[in-house]
Amino acid sequence: MSDEKILTETELDALFRDMSAAGGDIPDSLVSRIVADADTLALDRQPKMDFGLSLSDHIKSWFQIPRLATLGIAATIGLWVGYAPPSNIVDFYPLGQESITVNDFLFSIDAILEEG
């Protein structure tokens, strides 16, 4: 009994080949949309500036940078020497030419503190 109402394997394969060959090319507009999606996601992933850090976080971040840390230390030492210098530090001002402004300022601060 012959299979007259049924395609042969060869005939079916021919149909598959026709359909595969007629697949066409992906539209350029679709390619553009796919690439645009990729670009958008890539931009979203780039790190942003975070302005929500607390003040202490900001200050800590300064001291994570070596040069600023050095500057901070130098500033601290400068304030210490200026306000309450150790006795063995030589005063480089010529004798009789003290900084009246600074001493006056310091004396007035002391006066205010004594008065309470």
């Binding site: 359909m19 595969s20 697949g23 066409g24 090319d25 992906i26 679709l30 390619v31 796919i34 690439v35 990729a38 670009d39 890539a42 992933r45 780039q46």
Partner: peptide
Amino acid sequence: GDRVAARVLTERHAQRVWRHARH
């Protein structure tokens, strides 16, 4: 973050993906 890499991947795979969906 390399966007050029995405273009290459699109060039390689988008056509096949699209054709499979069409089929």
